[in-house]
Write a protein that binds this DNA or RNA. Structure first.
Lengths: 334, 334
DNA sequence: GGCCTGATCTGCAACGATGTATTCCAGCAA
DNA sequence: TTGCTGGAATACATCGTTGCAGATCAGGCC
């Protein structure tokens, strides 16, 4: 079997507990003893059994990350950043794909998944704040600001409204007046879709341009969703001179379909997205979009969660921070 | 604190071990007792402590997945598939990003990461077979057939050679004769780069077309790598009428740069890739590529690894399977 | 010398589950 | 009645660590 602390202790001629103390950097250990223990560890090739440590200490040094699906580029890139940030602080990340199913999200919040982690980073898509508060246990939980907003929960937010307004304002400044929105339903007011739609409306209003519900097309936030949506819009005969995809893959799907249909981008129709995934820079034409502060979100969320876990900071004060966004103007909407 | 088996046992008026037996579906339990225990579990909201179970049983029900970076689309999509396949069999996946660093890969093979998992799925990029065998412990290990090939190791392979040959043959059949290759060095013979390059050479030879080392440009397997590489090629003045990016992002980076430079694709230059990431279908023009059997790879690798873990199948026989690939002809090289 | 202090190290219990061995008991054959 | 069988439940040890309380010992001070 594997080498245990007991073996190391025997080899070094000290007690098991002293080995434990050495490993945990206990202050009062004679240098000579420490050397002896470290030598024995080296010689035997001892590795701490993390499972046993977890059981005893009640900590797993793992953060849970709940998102819909890693095959969504924005989430994959965010997950990568989060894992690096966690790694740098001595934590690992266990990813759970909810597939955007409410039941699955709920089980991730309370089930055994929870017991494997010291805290959760959660990108809710189906559950609302009330359900989250209901389902969540006592362990630290930080929401990543996509859909849900609530004063009772720690979260790191995207400036959905402001960023969407900035994109829209940019399109308006270019002279576009009929800007289609893909990925929201006319009535939406909450969630990323609603918040971004409202940002869009606000920018229109600020520019004195009339809001036309016929330009708002709902779709799945996927490439094929964007392609379908723009196809429907084209077929409907409603006129438009720009497209704002509420995320990049929707915009890219739409861009593809526009080009297939022989539209010139940006000459006939400008296209803009939201997320600034790596792909946006290399699309043809490259995609104008908004960078929501992904690196900052990952960094802050991990930091906040770990502070909660380790009991740093003010425990009673709910922390809500917003990441800084920035517009990335590229060829699709120069 | 959390509810333990002991609490459940007390509530149900049975011994702790009986609760354990119920949970583990032990055969001989009176239905009435089982009911009582289940009721108590329900009432108290008991959840198995997986850490304790792991310590006692020596199994974590977690698979490790070591890859370079989740922000690489192919890996993200593969990881998503793998997680679903594992989930369906009652396992979770713990992802470790090696960042393509040998030291990091090595530590993932032997370090504490290993002790958290029952087995490892490994996509080696820096280590060779010898190093892997040296570093790997006794726990099950399945390589995902990207770079390394060795008769001593379990693995699920991509048909790098054949698939690359198929792509090349397709370009040749179109009448292309000067096909640039991006992502390999002229001398490469091993690894995905070498194997794919060899497939390319074989297809050229089969068609009686001369191999020109000047058309082989090495680069990082990233979008910007592909863009840089094609820029260098264009600047060098070497003539070419097609580009084979050894993976999709390289091809897409090249495609972007070609269009920026005013080349018409596919009229002036055809472009093909390798991987069939979702993005390939929606690029403009859409990217001709080869689907390496990603879903099958994920499924088989997980199945094989779990069989190893659970001791099914023939333990002495090294398992090596190849996934079926298929060419996806799209606009960039019709 | 006796006592106190603080550095250093040790022993034991405990985290929450499972494996093994054992007990208990009803049913049935002898 | 006795003995046996096998279903059903249990007791106890155990996985490898860490927390806690305590033991040991040298040095300083009265």
């Amino acid at each position: 079997m594997a080498v245990t602390m007991n073996d190391v202790a025997r080899a070094a001629g000290v007690s098991l507990k002293t080995v434990s103390n050495v490993i945990n950097n206990y202050e009062f250990i004679r240098p000579a003893t420490k050397q002896r223990v470290l030598a024995a560890i080296e010689e035997l090739g001892y590795e701490t059994n993390l499972t046993a440590r977890s059981l005893r200490s009640g900590k797993t040094s793992m953060l849970g990350l709940v998102l819909s699906d890693l095959s969504v580029p924005y989430y994959a890139e965010l997950a990568s950043d989060i894992m690096k940030a966690a790694w740098a602080r001595g934590y690992r990340v266990l990813v759970e794909q909810s597939g955007n199913a409410a039941a699955h999200e709920k089980s991730a919040l309370q089930g055994q998944f929870r017991s494997l982690t010291d805290g959760l980073l959660f990108i809710p898509l189906s559950l609302d704040a009330e359900q989250i508060i209901q389902a969540a246990g006592k362990k630290p939980l930080v929401l990543l600001g996509e859909f849900v907003q609530d004063p009772r929960l720690d979260m790191v937010l995207i400036q959905n409204h402001e960023a969407a307004a900035a994109v829209t304002a940019h399109l308006l400044a270019e002279g576009r007046r009929r800007i289609a929105v893909l990925g929201a339903h006319d009535g939406d007011t909450t969630g990323s879709n609603g918040l971004r739609l409202n940002g869009y409306k606000a920018a229109l209003a600020a520019a004195g341009v009339e809001y036309d519900p016929a330009l708002v097309i709902d779709c799945e936030w996927r490439r094929d969703g964007g392609a379908d949506a723009i196809a429907r819009l084209l077929d409907s005969g409603v006129g438009f001179d720009a497209v704002f995809g509420l995320n990049d893959v929707v915009a890219l799907g739409a861009l593809h379909e526009l080009l297939v249909r022989g539209k010139r981008v940006p000459d006939d129709i400008a296209v803009a997205g939201f997320d600034d995934i790596d792909e946006a820079r290399f699309a043809s034409p490259s995609l104008t979009t908004v960078e929501p502060g992904r690196a900052e979100i990952a960094e802050r969320a991990v930091e906040l969660l770990i502070n909660r876990i380790e009991g740093n900071g003010s425990p009673d004060k709910v922390e809500q921070t917003e990441a800084a966004f920035s517009l990335r103007v590229r060829q699709s909407a120069p």
